[in-house]
């Protein structure tokens, strides 16, 4: 289970990512705990497996429309399906990797896996209940899903 300081680490990671990469701030909604069933996800989800002293996953899920604009903000002209998947994985990887500033090097992150789905649900790899951190950027909504034992 995450404590307040740990949730703050992931919020700061998301805020920092958008500040630097998109050069536009992201608005963070109130984090909440999923108590019933798996969380719903958007069209693209980047999943980072966590092992070491903590176990679980960190996911960034976003709609195609948001990723398209984010790529353009990064001056990337190739908005192909492959680059959408690459971007969603890279966002998840960057936020997870930055979290090691607070969690330390025993917070071991995997390479990203990417799930593309229209109406999917994310099934957490561990028994811990997932925390959802809602993110709103321009007119788009995304989520950071943090599920750690």
């Amino acid at each position: 289970m995450l404590n307040e300081g740990e949730i703050r680490t992931f919020i700061q990671g998301a805020v920092h990512y958008f500040e630097v990469s998109a050069r536009q701030p992201v608005a963070v909604g109130s984090p909440y705990l999923i108590t019933d069933g798996p969380p719903s996800v958007h069209e693209y989800t980047g999943v980072i497996g966590i092992s070491g002293k903590r176990k679980g996953a960190v996911c960034f899920t976003a709609p195609r429309s948001m990723l398209m604009v984010l790529l353009m903000r990064m001056n990337e002209t190739d908005t192909s399906e492959d680059n959408m998947k690459d971007l969603i994985g890279e966002v998840a990887n960057t936020i997870s990797g930055n979290a090691r500033r607070d969690f330390g090097r025993d917070f071991v992150i995997s390479v990203p896996t990417v799930v593309a789905s229209d109406n999917g649900k994310f099934t957490p790899p561990v028994g811990a209940r997932p925390f959802i951190i809602p993110l709103n950027w321009r007119s788009h909504s995304a989520k950071l899903i943090v599920c750690l034992e």
Binding site: N93, T94, I95, S96, G97, N98, A99, R100, R101, F103, G104, R105, F107, I109
Partner: peptide, 9 residues
């Protein structure tokens, strides 16, 4: 050039 932000890495 890495996202791994801990000093030990």
């Amino acid at each position: 050039v890495s996202a791994l932000a801990d000093k030990a890495t």
